[in-house]
Design a protein around this nucleic acid. Sequence first.
DNA 1: CAGACATGAGTTATCTCATAACATTACGGT
DNA 2: ACCGTAATGTTATGAGATAACTCATGTCTG
Lengths: 170, 170
Amino acid sequence: MSVENHAADDAATAFASHDHSTCRAQALQAADDLAAAQGVRLTPVRRRTLEILLETHRALGAYEVLERLGAEGFGSQPPVAYRALDFLVQHGLAHRVQRLNAFAACLSPGHDHAPAFLICRACNKVAEADAPEIRSALRAAAVGVGFSVERMTVEALGLCDACAAAERPE
Amino acid sequence: MSVENHAADDAATAFASHDHSTCRAQALQAADDLAAAQGVRLTPVRRRTLEILLETHRALGAYEVLERLGAEGFGSQPPVAYRALDFLVQHGLAHRVQRLNAFAACLSPGHDHAPAFLICRACNKVAEADAPEIRSALRAAAVGVGFSVERMTVEALGLCDACAAAERPE
DNA sequence: CAGACATGAGTTATCTCATAACATTACGGT
DNA sequence: ACCGTAATGTTATGAGATAACTCATGTCTG
């Protein structure tokens, strides 16, 4: 399977080798656009927090982010990180990964999506899989029992191709 | 919509009014059976922990459980609760609800299922919805990007019928 | 039944994750 | 320049989770 997507328009960019600088730049650009469009402020801490998340496809704990921020002259107390992360999540620029109590940059911001996450337990990378059928199936099941869904969490823990290959000869 | 299920064989028992003592007794019986069948020990702490979870359809935090256990003469330190809860989860007698960092008794143990959870944000009750389509949809999406799923988490936050009704006139 | 081993329960201490509450600073409109 | 609001910063504390060790209990063996 060849790798030729030029950006984060594919669900599983995270696990494939790809031009990550483009990946990052595009997400950051989208964030700037979105901030301008919505009249919200992508302040230095917030922007830097997003950049930090964008450095890898792994999900980072709030304290990992905080450590980085503190080292760069921003505040070094938990609320600094949590507030920036909350802002990003609120505006669809990052997602919270429940399973890991951690945060990952969103690779296709502006879509107002609530994707499924694929979490590799070996390399810790996290990919977003946009799977509308999953969401509609859940919603349907809920309606059947008189439950109205407001937010949903769909996460899968497993192995990505690369890590599965690495583990097999063991 | 009438309520006539005699036990936990329906996905959304939790939100409906039902004969809870039967509900509880059945789950407990299933646990005893399962322990006997698998040759594992449903010790006093473990059994009591399950009973505590079975008292309501809400998910309880480990420390809520611990408080109860401690008050009843069991150990009062976190590992006591976590070990019992881990045991129950391991053997399919309880589930962990990621979104709440909490635990709920399984209402149909022995099925080795990994259900979707419907969490009412008002009354905090948690229902299990067995929705195989969701799981297969997620698995399918994962296969498409070369990811092999080992465990999955599907949780929906929203309002159950009763709470939605109660909130409307507001 | 004694001894050996495995499993479970209890304790202390510590770690990670998260938020409440309040003081201070920067920003945008008039 | 002034004022109100939003954002940042700080201290302190709450909530969730686990490591590491000790002691008790249970069971299998001879």
